[in-house]
């Protein structure tokens, strides 16, 4: 990885605002989808797609590419936005999201959308899928790495912990997981629905290398990924504290925006805020 410069951080911040504008527009356009969890994961996805991942938009199935697996499939607007901005398909196509005959399904479909690596929607399968990918890379002595983004709601799912055990059994240091710890799931606060804390201790008990970061601080995100790359013999999980709906003040930390789009008026306000942010950069 190249040196983390002020210019790099500024470029990533600008890109993240662009992705957030796409997320708000896409979900508003179809009046459905999950903007909140897309915006909380936005900085992690931006750091990966615009600095870390070795991928080739001209050759999405290049065998030696890094794999990005989105386990929290409902956050696919941020994935589609990143893929479009990275050149996997035209940015204009984002407005077909969730519409009939679109390549951009309501939850990710493998084989349809260029750059999408897994189907997700039923929660809790992505980390297991990532374990399979990481095992295959190791078997073939390949250097490509697997990155998996999980939601914190997904920590409720038993299969997540089945995968956690398998990854540590096989010492998969070529696998890095992110937990988008925004603290909110469909029906409320994670700690009210099904308490997760102490989450760090849980992952440590499963023999993972655990890092806690601010999931909206690019320096911390990149430093954590560097540390994951340096870690040998264990998979790394980066528990990223995030804000649901991050980037638009009235959407932040609101349970409502887990699975609801903005109204026409709210869209104007949201875009005005994001454009203001862009202008100040």
């Amino acid at each position: 990885m190249v040196e983390v410069t002020e210019e790099l951080i500024a470029a990533l911040k600008r890109k993240a605002v662009t992705l957030r504008k796409h997320i708000v527009r896409m979900t508003h356009n179809v009046q459905s989808g999950h903007p909140g969890g897309s915006m909380s994961a936005c900085d992690i996805v931006t750091a990966l797609y615009f600095h870390v991942l070795r991928v080739d938009p001209k050759n999405p199935t290049w065998p030696d590419r890094d794999r990005f697996v989105l386990s929290k499939g409902h956050a696919c607007p941020v994935w589609y936005a990143a893929l479009a901005e990275r050149g996997f398909f035209p940015v204009e196509e984002l407005m077909t999201f969730r519409k009939l005959n679109s390549r951009l399904q309501g939850h990710p479909e493998f084989g349809t959308t260029p750059g999408v690596e897994n189907a997700a929607g039923a929660e809790g399968q992505g980390l297991s899928f990532s374990v399979g990918l990481a095992l295959a890379a190791r078997m073939d002595h390949k250097a490509w790495r697997t990155y998996c983004v999980l939601g914190d709601g997904e920590q409720d799912v038993g299969q997540t912990w089945e995968a956690a055990m398998a990854a540590s059994k096989y010492g998969l240091d070529n696998l890095t997981a992110f937990i988008d710890r925004n603290g909110i799931q469909q029906e409320g606060r994670t700690e009210d629905i099904m308490p997760l804390e102490p989450l760090r201790n849980k992952w440590e008990a499963f023999n993972w290398h655990v890092l806690n970061i601010d999931g909206h601080d690019f320096r911390q995100i990149l430093a954590a990924i560097e540390e994951a790359h340096r870690t040998r013999g264990r998979p790394t999980v980066i528990i990223a504290r995030t804000v649901k709906g991050k980037g638009v003040s009235f959407m932040e930390n609101k349970i409502k925006y887990h699975g609801a789009a903005t109204s026409d008026d709210e869209l104007k306000l949201a875009l005005a805020e994001l454009e203001g942010m862009e202008a100040s950069m």
Partner: peptide
């Protein structure tokens, strides 16, 4: 032994791991 993975009493994980292996070109 290098192509065999004992994943314990965790069949959902076993199926998804197989899927990941297949996505990377294996025949699990």
């Amino acid at each position: 032994p290098d192509r065999f993975f004992q994943l314990g009493i965790a069949e959902p994980n076993m199926i998804s791991v197989a899927a990941g292996l297949a996505a990377a070109g294996k025949i699990p």
